[in-house]
């Protein structure tokens, strides 16, 4: 059973449907017992970083997710959920993240050319920094995934597993041990996205 963390941010219908499509049972939950018993965790999220980080903390989910990740359970953050894995964000002020992966969230306008549109909306390809990243098992470099974002992860150093090119290289996947983060939406990235989720569901954790 995979636990999709419900902390009142975003629509999780497509995510649970996409997991069902690859034969993975999942539950949308904020129940700490269910999350502790799950074999893996997905941290979703859309919207603003500050609000989401606050909701994670006040609901107790932030500590729980950190505890589970430290215990070696496979964890995937998606979109804002990926951004929350990093140290801090500069989206409308400065907000601390979970600090599971080193790095910061900054506006893409800092690095992309002026005539590029913000947000980046649409299909862009993946360029692998770490082809050995387990969630790339069933996909190849150059495959397209669906992005919607105005902020990006920077200074993730050796934890950057893939980037995408949008006038500048933007972090697309972060990876450290059992913790993965996708800036794009695998649940909206067709067959490629389902393949990423399938590979994540096959990564090994302590309770698998």
């Amino acid at each position: 059973m995979l636990a999709i963390i419900d902390y009142g941010v975003g629509n999780l219908f497509s995510l649970s449907c996409s997991l069902k499509a690859i034969g993975k049972e999942s539950v949308i939950t904020s129940d700490s017992e269910i999350i502790r018993n799950a074999d893996r965790i997905i941290l979703p999220g859309v919207g603003a970083f500050g609000d989401a980080a606050e909701k994670l903390r006040s609901s107790g989910m932030a500590e729980l997710v950190k505890e589970q990740a430290a215990a070696g359970k496979p964890l995937m953050g998606i979109c804002l959920g990926m951004q929350l894995l990093l140290d801090k964000s500069f989206e409308y002020g400065e907000h601390p993240g979970l600090g599971l992966i080193s790095g910061e969230i900054r506006p893409i306008s800092d690095v992309i050319p002026e005539d590029y549109k913000i947000p980046q909306i649409g299909w862009n390809y993946l360029k692998f920094n770490k082809p050995e990243c387990p969630i790339f098992k069933y996909i190849k470099e150059g495959d397209f995934v669906y992005f919607v974002h105005s902020f990006y992860g920077t200074d993730c150093s050796e934890n950057t597993a893939a980037v995408t090119e949008y006038g500048a290289p933007l972090t697309a996947v972060v990876w450290k041990d059992n913790v993965f983060g996708c800036q794009f939406h695998p649940e909206k990235s067709g067959e490629v996205g389902l393949s990423i989720l399938r590979a994540f569901c096959e990564t090994e954790g302590p309770q698998c």
């Binding site: 497509s14 449907c17 996409s18 499509a21 649940e187 909206k188 990235s189 067709g190 067959e191």
Partner: peptide, 11 residues
Amino acid sequence: LTETASKVFIP
């Protein structure tokens, strides 16, 4: 819409 979203994984 619900039926489509459960079968089609593009935006």
